[in-house]
Amino acid sequence: MTTTAPVASSPVVRAERAPQPSDGSWQGRNREYDLLKEFVVALVVVALLAAGLAALFSSPDEHQVTLTSWSTAAPTDFVATAATELDGTSGTATYGAPYTRTPDAAQKIGPVSLQHIAGVTHPINTSTDFITGPLASLPGDPTVSAALAQWTAASAAQQQSWSGSYDAALQKAAGNDPAKVAPGSYGPVPTMLTGLLRLAQAGRLDGALLLQGSFYQTDYTKPLLFIADGSYLADKGGAEHLAGEQWGMMNETGSYPGQAWLWLYTFWYQVKPFSTSGNADALVMVVMTVLSIGLISVPFLPGIRSIPKWIPVHRIIWRDYYRNTGSSTS
């Protein structure tokens, strides 16, 4: 193909008005362009950049929170959380699908609750899974065993009365300190929760909550939900600017950049009506799904697809081509 001959000044014409090959392919002048060389250079540059950035800045690895570290660092928060797991008032106990059958707990999009429709696929009974189960599987302390036997022998109404009154009294006690709880009819509950605290501090609860009768295990749902019901994890996350109302989705522990590409997703949580809605998660998910489909469909959206024509950034990108008079060497 001969394309180097200079041609007299030829004004550019609108591409869409010009005759085009039906497959959209370019029939005009070309020039040498070594794609493989470009790729190899890019690969070397990116590899060196990554190696340099990794050597210079390393990567974050903030220590995990365990039931042991939580119960040791914040025993009152641990016991207060355990009390809500036992009387069924914790975040997990009242979550709804996919963990519990709590009526009306599921989020809705208008009249539809996809959360409810999807069903309870990971059933959790916080009282037995988080408290009495681990206590029964880790015998050792006779007073705790006796308390557990008293609890097991009692009626459901009696259990609820003991655990509910203890939880309420603990929340009223100074600093939520179990030692400062006013006297009351709590049955075996204080002994059970103190026993659970000792188990947790001794490092025996982490394994008990994870394994739950199985040897191999990779599912951390139960220990994570228990830890997340307390305020220790939330406070630690808040201090690192990871919480939802802090644009936390795009942040990272320490001073590292985070998932900045989630800026729009986390933005919605900061503004009304999402910031005050009980259905915020579901509504933000809907908005982001619609916007994502929108980005994928840009070529088919009248108006949006014309923006590049109205705001002619293309005049900068193709300035050399537009400026040249038809000679490929210019």
């Binding site: 210079l56 800045f57 390393s58 690192e240 795009m250 990272e252 320490g254 950049p257 985070g258 900045a260």
Partner: peptide, 30 residues
């Protein structure tokens, strides 16, 4: 190499403008 010359393992700095909160690290990247 695992011990980096620039230590980013300290509490990050955050900027606030009204509803907008952004870490200095993310701002630098963007």
């Amino acid at each position: 190499l695992a011990t980096s010359p620039v230590n980013l393992n300290h509490r990050g700095h955050y900027l606030h403008w009204g509803v907008i909160q952004i870490s200095v690290a993310n701002l630098v990247v963007i």
